[in-house]
Design a protein around this nucleic acid. Structure first.
Lengths: 235, 235
DNA sequence: AGCTTATGCCAACGCAGTTGACCTTACAGT
DNA sequence: ACTGTAAGGTCAACTGCGTTGGCATAAGCT
């Protein structure tokens, strides 16, 4: 019966695996992060993870409903780490900036895992905690509820979306990544000025800018937007 | 020899498949889009696509280096459709708004395909055409080159990132999607006000806002940012 | 008409997720 | 301390995946 998954909190009888280790959701997720880092975003397989744990692949189905369920648990872990690394200062401008960067950084610390998970909203406890925190900051700053909800929505989706996109390029194999970065110097820089005048005119700027993330800039635009909204309300 | 892929332009001898159809890159990509729509973002397999084409799966390797190569071709097709559906008006504010929405809409018209491809930058011709167009709009509006490059970067990444994220929720199976949308009414709306006061206070607004995309709002923030930058330059 | 070879098909490889049957051992109740 | 129960481990096998090498055939050139 691989369909019945016992929740972590209700577990009591933990047997040893063939390899001698004692399993738990936490250990499995941590090991999965290691396997992902070592074998890439498509390298997390039940057999490989089982081998890394010293356990049979089918054992995983005692803890997760399937590989998809495991992936969501990994995403929840990254979101939790982001929130843990963040502390409130009470400043409405510094707080969302730091939290956004914490989320982005937490996912980018595990690019291969981020590729797997950042594109989905899980609705798990730690994600909800982040939501509550952001809404609290925005409402505390004085934004009317409808505006706060709109900004919150853009904030969380933007953070996750950029995390997924930036992780994608970061997760490329070394060879592929440098080839990707070189593209801006080779392909784009060599476009003739007649057919692509704007790219040609800014090629040197593009080569410097494109290998980095646009997330910080987008985040500042969001904060700027809050500024404008607050001045309209008259806070 | 499945490694030698003949470029589409150089093809001459087209044989009929067992099913009677005559193949081409375009037909394969179009059929792939159909298979993706019918079977989901993970449902595009060589065997299934072969069956849909009335051809042997291995035949695909005469046209693409592998399933990954096919995926990039699909992404290029979506980007091309976005650019084709857009026409310049000369207005620096209306043009990027319409182009951003065209990109977003083109990907969301094929959510399952977007999930597969929107997270990667291809550097293919049609993507380059979009880049050149945006840079032209921004520089034409009067932005200094460094600012224009920064805004362009945020614009293209934001469009792709949101396309990937929004496509993700749209690509969920019907059953899973409605369950996802209901989450904001059930799970979030039922959170106790003591532990989650901000979510509780705005639950009705969240339920209305969250099922929709935050991309339009983020796009407006970007346009707003251009406004501010232009006023600083003094245009 | 005949030659070349691009382009199709077939069979098979290793690996994937997943499941059902089966042990085995940790704990609860006495 | 003893024992019954079932959680939680293993094993073997299923289907389907991407991919490849060998082979057949028909399209187009001369």
């Amino acid at each position: 019966m691989a369909k019945q998954v016992v929740p972590e909190a209700a577990r009591q009888r933990r047997r040893r695996t063939h390899g001698g280790t004692v399993l738990s959701e936490e250990i499995i997720v941590r090991t999965a992060l290691r396997v992902l880092r070592e074998h890439g975003s498509t390298g997390l397989t039940a057999r490989r993870l089982g081998a890394a744990l010293g356990a049979d692949p089918s054992t995983l189905y005692r803890y997760f409903a399937g590989m998809d369920d495991l992936a969501r648990a990994i995403g929840d872990e990254l979101m939790g780490r982001a929130l843990d690394s963040w502390t409130s200062t009470g400043d409405w401008r510094a707080d969302p900036r730091a939290l956004g960067r914490a989320i982005h950084a937490s996912y980018l610390a595990h690019p291969q895992a981020a590729v797997l998970t950042a594109s989905r909203v899980t609705g798990r406890p730690r994600e909800i905690a982040v939501d509550e925190t952001i809404l609290g900051i925005l409402r505390g700053a004085g934004l009317p509820d409808p505006v706060a909800v709109g900004v919150y929505h853009a904030f969380i989706d933007q953070s996750l979306a950029f995390a997924a996109l930036d992780a994608g390029s970061l997760a490329l194999a070394d060879e592929a990544r440098t080839r990707d970065e070189e593209m801006w110097r080779s392909t784009y820089a060599r476009l003739p000025a007649e057919s692509h005048p704007n790219i040609a005119a800014t090629a040197h700027l593009l080569a410097r800018r494109m290998p980095h993330s646009a997330f910080p800039a987008a985040l500042e635009m969001l904060l700027e937007h809050i500024d404008v909204q607050l001045s309209r309300v008259g806070a």
